[in-house]
Amino acid sequence: MTLLTAERTPAGTSYLATGQGQPVVLIHGVGLNKEMWGGQIVGLAPHYRVIAYDMLGHGASPRPASGTDLVGYAEQLLELLDHLELAQASIIGFSMGGLIARAFALHYPQRTGGLVVLNSVFNRSPEQSAGVIERARQVAEHGPNANAEAALARWFSREYQAANPAQIAALRQTLASNDPQGYLTTYELFATQDMYRADALHGIRVPALIATGELDPGSTPQMARELAARIPGAEVAVLAEQRHMMPVESPRLVNQLLLDFLHRAQTIENPAEGIVA
């Protein structure tokens, strides 16, 4: 595999880009960075132009200003598309990235060619909300490393953790090395914005896929089904025996899901491609 060199937009967003064809943008989860998408970059780049970037407050991108809301994170993506001179892209968001992808599709529908929300949150129960708000409080008090061990236990199967100790150690280091204020700003949005503009989701009119893992405790199959029910024509996929970090733990499985959806979405946009002479 060719080693990709990160580039920057004028506003400072750090991103990787490779491949050719229709553009696909990957948005990582809170506490992570663009490097989480290695398996997807390898799997998708032979078919699409793949762009992965660091969200505000993460990786090599700038820290968000105090009080930045989801619109600010969506505007970061808009500036990236403008920099790359892309009129439109399919947006794939994981976890917190799924909230950003939703906000982007709502605020910039003309720039959204398709929407994929992976392992993300919607309509948390009071108990679920209380739990994640408490984790945000711990982050505010103790910093980005406050919940690392519990997060890794939620994210990965025990078998995967045992088989990949070096990767788990690297992820633990990534979490600990996050900018404290950038991480906290993002985590507080993640903890409170699961119902962001829920009453407007019916206005999303692009091909959409909402997917999660059967065993994802924080981004449950029920959440995926409820979110998909709000978006006209949205597909739902629940991957058997998968936990939260299924793009990392099972990249081939997730890649096939994404490739199948992106092909169907492209056929919908260009019906002639589906006609066999």
Results as ranks from 00 to 15, higher is better:
Val30Gln: 01
Thr212Pro: 03
Asp54Ala: 09
Gly67Tyr: 07
Ser177Ala: 14
Ile41Gly: 01
Gln40Glu: 15
Asn33Tyr: 05
Asp194Ala: 11
Ser95Lys: 00
Tyr160Gly: 01
Glu249Cys: 07
Thr68Val: 10
Ile210Ser: 08
Gly233Pro: 01
Thr185Met: 07
Ser177Gly: 02
Met1His: 14
Arg230Glu: 14
Ala224Lys: 01
Ile41His: 02
Glu235His: 11
Val254Thr: 15
Gln128Thr: 06
Asp260Phe: 08
Arg225Met: 15
Leu4Pro: 06
Leu44Ile: 09
Thr18Phe: 03
Ile91Asp: 08
Ala130Cys: 08
Gly59Gln: 03
Asp199Phe: 05
Ala224Trp: 07
His28Ala: 08
Leu106Ser: 01
Gln22Arg: 14
Gly114Ala: 15
Leu239Met: 13
Leu106Asp: 01
Gln76Met: 04
Leu86Glu: 13
Ala198Met: 06
Ser157Phe: 07
Tyr108Gln: 04
Val132Gln: 06
Thr13Glu: 05
Asn164Gln: 13
Asp82Gly: 07
Ala52Met: 09
Gln76Trp: 02
Leu44Thr: 04
Glu214Pro: 04
Ala65Glu: 14
Ala170Tyr: 07
Val121Lys: 00
Arg205Lys: 14
Thr220Ile: 06
Leu81Ala: 01
Gly21Ser: 14
Leu70Cys: 04
Leu201Tyr: 05
Ala234Gly: 11
Met55Leu: 11
Val116Cys: 12
Met245Glu: 12
Arg111Pro: 02
Gln76Ser: 09
Ala191Asn: 01
Ser129Arg: 12
Val248Tyr: 03
Phe156Tyr: 12
Glu75Trp: 00
Arg49Gln: 15
Leu99Asp: 01
Gln22Gly: 07
Thr68Asp: 03
Val206Met: 07
Ser61Met: 06
Leu4Gly: 09
Pro217Asn: 10
Gly12Ile: 09
Ala151Glu: 04
Arg205Asp: 15
Gln128Ile: 00
Leu259Tyr: 10
Thr5Val: 15
Tyr15His: 11
Ala166Ser: 09
Glu226Ile: 03
Arg252Phe: 13
His107Asp: 07
Gln40Val: 08
Gly233Leu: 08
Ala211Ser: 13
Pro23Phe: 09
Arg252Ala: 15
Ala229Glu: 14
Gly39Asn: 03
Arg172Leu: 04
Ile231Lys: 05
Arg243Asn: 06
Met223Ser: 13
Ile275Leu: 12
Ala148Thr: 15
Lys34Gln: 15
Ala11Thr: 11
Ala176His: 05
Glu75Ser: 03
Pro109Ile: 07
Ala103Trp: 00
Gly12Thr: 09
Gly38Gln: 13
Phe94His: 14
Ala65Asp: 13
Asn178Pro: 01
Ala234Tyr: 03
Val50Tyr: 07
Leu259Asp: 12
Tyr48Lys: 02
Gly39Val: 04
Ala265Arg: 01
Ile27His: 04
Gln222His: 08
Ala272Pro: 00
His83Cys: 15
Gln256Ala: 13
Ala163Ser: 12
Glu273Asn: 05
Leu70Ala: 05
Met195Phe: 04
Ala237Asn: 09
Tyr53Phe: 15
Tyr73Phe: 14
Gly19Gln: 12
Ala89Lys: 03
Glu249Leu: 10
Thr267Glu: 10
Val25Asn: 05
Gly131Tyr: 00
Pro126Cys: 13
Ile204Trp: 06
Gly57Glu: 02
